[in-house]
């Protein structure tokens, strides 16, 4: 019989609110993403100065992952938690910033500090560095949240024992429109790992 897995915890960042398992941790009335995420970072006592050099997609993904992973009893040296993330806009939020540095010859000044973030999977690298995840990172693009894809892929990684746990979800940002929903899949947990439950959790806030 195929082994079944569970969802053990989940987080949301949207509408100026950070929540874990449906409970609001932080909320702010700032409509500007940069201001909001900085306030959330401080309130949540994140204590990771590399955060400030990240682009907006990485800040969003990093904080949504951090509020979940810091609840876990993680090993200091290494952990095997795969990151399977997805979104619609890829890294377009930062791509447009790089494009602005090359759009006219008179002000041509591309910057490596911006360019390195013109890949969606960089946010997975940021999370892996902080939490010592020497595990799989995969970033998929869909035009909407696709629970079936994430569920199948997470099951495959867990059943083949390539990963002990899988952190899945959706992290999307374009300027001040943003949404993060992440959930942790593993052997133990209270919530069934099926598409109906994933959709229910996705819509909970």
């Amino acid at each position: 019989m195929n082994k079944e897995f569970k969802i053990s915890s989940y987080s949301h960042i949207k509408n100026q609110t950070v929540s874990v398992n449906g409970n609001v941790l932080f909320t702010d009335d700032s409509e500007d993403f940069t201001t909001f995420i900085k306030a959330a970072y401080k309130f949540l006592d994140t204590g990771y100065s590399k955060f400030f050099k990240m682009d907006n997609l990485s800040k969003l993904a990093f904080l949504a992952a951090d509020v979940l992973l810091k609840q876990e009893d993680l090993n200091e040296d290494e952990n095997n938690i795969a990151l399977i993330f997805s979104n619609k806009a890829s890294s377009l939020d930062t791509d447009r910033k790089h494009q602005a540095t090359i759009k006219n010859d008179a002000e041509y000044f591309p910057s490596p500090a911006i360019f390195v973030y013109t890949l969606p999977n960089i946010c997975l690298g940021e999370i892996s560095i902080k939490h010592k995840l020497y595990s799989e990172n995969s970033f998929f693009i869909f035009d909407r949240f696709n629970p079936e894809h994430l569920q199948l892929y997470a099951n495959s990684l867990l059943r083949s024992e390539k990963s002990e746990k899988v952190l899945c979800g959706w992290v999307d940002i374009e300027e001040n429109i943003y949404e993060a929903f992440l959930y942790l899949v593993e052997s133990n947990g209270e919530i069934e790992h099926n598409t109906e439950e994933i959709i229910r959790l996705y819509k909970i806030l």
Binding site: L124, I129, L133, Y134, S135, N137
Partner: peptide, 10 residues
């Protein structure tokens, strides 16, 4: 298999 370095982004 796919594994991250957990070291540096660039």
């Amino acid at each position: 298999s796919t594994c991250n370095d957990a070291n540096h982004i660039s």
